[in-house]
Amino acid sequence: MRRRRVQWWSALWLAAVWMLLWGDISVANALVGLVVGALVTLTLRMAPMDFHGKVRPLGLLRLLTRFAVDLVRGSFEVAMIALRFGYQPQGAVIGVRLRSHSDLYLTLTAELCTLVPGSVVIDAHRLTGTLYLHVLDVSHSGGLEAARQHVLDQEERVLRALASDAELAEAGLTEAKQGVGS
């Protein structure tokens, strides 16, 4: 458990941050970044991320484009509600039980749900894989069930982008593409 190993993905990420901070993309800078990243991950160890999935480019592309669209939509929806004077949004806290049991997908779904329309994560229950989200305006989101479905769709997109076949099957999502859109 306490074995000192370089966590290569973290080191790569740190090297990328290093290069962006320097604003200089060159081989020398990349090498220095990798050395610094390796040193940092060796000395300041993080809990290893357990990732058994595989990256699916198409799923990832769909996740990212949908996220970009949702971010814009969510921002303008909240902005519009803020500008409608005299209108008080009716909020709710809902619990959504996710289908996968992985910390990584739970975290990703939670992060993405906070930035897209309608929801902010309030609490997460790791053992049962339940997310508790605050819905800003229930009627605007099309009711509680629609908000719940929204979170599940988000999770499905995350799984289809990153999960392995076994994890997909475990979550009850078959390989065949189902309608994800809402």
Binding site: L71, V72, G74, S75, F76, E77, V78, A79, M80, I81, A82, L83, F85, Q88, P89, G91, V93, T114, L115, V116, P117, V120, I122, H134, L136
Partner: peptide, 27 residues
Amino acid sequence: FAAGLGALRFPDLAARMHAGTKPQTLG
């Protein structure tokens, strides 16, 4: 600006967090 307005105007803490995350980040 809308994010700031929302943070001022929304009724409770959770609603204010909506203003602080979405329009603020995209802005």
